[in-house]
Design a binder for these strands. Sequence first.
DNA 1: ATCGTATGTTAGTAACCGAAACATACTAAG
DNA 2: CTTAGTATGTTTCGGTTACTAACATACGAT
Lengths: 391, 391
Amino acid sequence: MQSTHLREHNLSLVMRAVVAATDPVSRATLARSTKLTKPTVSKLVEELVAAGLVEEHSPVSQGSGRPMVPLQPAKHTVLGIGLEIAAEHISCLGIDLAGEPLSTRTEYLEVTASNVAETVATCARLVEKVRADAGDAAPVGVCVAVPGRMSPDGESVLAAPNLDWVDVPLARELRQVLNLDHLPVLARNDIRLSVLTELAKRPDESFMYVRGSTGVGGAIVLEGKVLEGVHGWAGEFGHTVVEPGGALCRCGRHGCLEAYVSYHALRERAGLRRDVLIEELVEELSRSTDRAEVIGTIGRSLGLAVANALNILDLSTVVLSGYLGPIAEEIAPFIRETVDRHALAAEVGEIVIERSDDLAAPALWGAARAAIWPILDSPGHWIARSTALTD
Amino acid sequence: MQSTHLREHNLSLVMRAVVAATDPVSRATLARSTKLTKPTVSKLVEELVAAGLVEEHSPVSQGSGRPMVPLQPAKHTVLGIGLEIAAEHISCLGIDLAGEPLSTRTEYLEVTASNVAETVATCARLVEKVRADAGDAAPVGVCVAVPGRMSPDGESVLAAPNLDWVDVPLARELRQVLNLDHLPVLARNDIRLSVLTELAKRPDESFMYVRGSTGVGGAIVLEGKVLEGVHGWAGEFGHTVVEPGGALCRCGRHGCLEAYVSYHALRERAGLRRDVLIEELVEELSRSTDRAEVIGTIGRSLGLAVANALNILDLSTVVLSGYLGPIAEEIAPFIRETVDRHALAAEVGEIVIERSDDLAAPALWGAARAAIWPILDSPGHWIARSTALTD
DNA sequence: ATCGTATGTTAGTAACCGAAACATACTAAG
DNA sequence: CTTAGTATGTTTCGGTTACTAACATACGAT
């Protein structure tokens, strides 16, 4: 490592500490939390303030001693742009460093294999609108959430069954259309972006994330890092077999978890109308069938898959999201039971099963956060870049 | 990060590069591989040579140009001490920085709950002998491999069924008996140490490690790091249920993998005599039963457990060790089949199933390597420490 | 009015790494 | 035998970084 990298490292450390703090922080507090000395922090903060990434407010007294100068992530100066492509709509969200939404826009269209160009054009239109709404805030980058399997480099969509897409070089096409010279434009899997939203609330924790929505998605988070795996789908247990030779899944095989626990599977089997909202799925199901039975179906299948994963990874926390969130407490016993059956009960501590306080569109928010990430990770690059542009 | 940490980081970088290289390396080569500049490398190497951690040989011509000065990890100067506690014997191995064995000693005794003190005494005796054998080599630390569940800090054995141990503060007791002032003494799970031996051959790779021995152990390696998990048993799928309601396992539940695929289970079910060597288990079994049936039993159970784990973690490599190594090729089809059944076949690349060229005692070797680790990780500390002692 | 306390700044210092030039030691060719 | 070419390793110097120690600042408490 070179000495210049050291500075970048520390700059990022301070920047992230400022963003991570919910309340304004003083330089002295930063020095303690980053384990750097006060002069060092002052130097680094000076640079961040000069670059407009951190805001300095007027001194505030804190009991005895000299009043602190509160520092906060700059508001409305920087714009992280998140996009979400779903089967029937495309949304765009712009947030600033503080995580404040600056603008949200949505357009409705049926995304299919035949209208990739139109989809890209729509994305571009939405991004332009959000940029306009955001005023002076300088764009940092764009991240697109796609419900499908992506190439690990974030360049292209390998397969997105819901959209009927195969091998679409989405990032490249967007980059060409969007007029953002050399800013990063990446495409990522929607679940892996959703989990970032959860991760913002539990930094550095280890847990398993399960989201019930159109399909069943999941991710594994180890010490604050989302596990990728060689193909980038670690933790995706939608197609784990939970009942050998069981129900036919749309992937063509039998007994997949997704064939039991997914919006489509549950809705169709209960013969409900197509326009049931995902959030209301469980309520609707309980109306037509015995609630215990519905919960039982979900719980048993999910319990097996989740318990297996927890066991192998030696994790003790599951976060349930999507329509699984509201019924987390009801599903919990099934997961617990299977875990107890699979691991030595005495060895296992209590399994923590939590519901995610889900936002309406976690993937969209995750994408926006991911777009901001480069600034937090290497503020120096950004500063160098922006000063080079203005000169 | 402080500037002094930067130096430590770079020192470690150079040290590890020297050790990782199989052949002697020049300063210039190190500069290229570590991405530091030549002067920096020279400075750092100078310090390592002065401390006796790296050896400088006489210049060797390499075609044209000035001959290089070959650098190698110092031999016989430093001693990493590994211990292995098994049910019926205790072994001790001392290696140097180059990974050369300096001495191996073994004593036989039945380790049980009643003779913890004797076990510790035996360990101490073995360590003393190895130290004596190693001559001037300076001890770096001690690491003990124990077949059981350990506290994450490496201090104590929580439970080791094979030894009938529960809650034994092994590291502390050893530290008191061994006369190694303030050198690290740690106790670790044997499988997690075995995998270090494999890891030395595949640095920075990701794979799953499965070892068939008295029981069935496993570990997950992600980018060269052994996954720990909250309790420190990530990847241990010996007690994964592979057949609900199946054979009784000694853990008290039914259908565990270990109830089918373990030395004890296989030997007892075939009615073989007790003194069959683990290495010869499969051969012996094939003599009394149909080989295809034996392989089938192992393959089906293991295939299910391994395939599930690969699927969830999105890994594509399995390394089979212990008595599973020799029959890796025969088991491979079962694992492949289950993987294909569980994951979307089109999405999965080829699963690589490899055998570990197992040493006789990988856990012992892993322990010795682990004992050496502190030097590679922070040579500066070691240098400071040893100069402080000699002054 | 003074003391205590916590924040933030100002030198001055020590340490680090890197760029460039140089010294070194060999091979290969004329 | 000489010269050119090449790669290694060293020296010198400069720029940057972060730390130490002391100080200035701005409050509350007594």
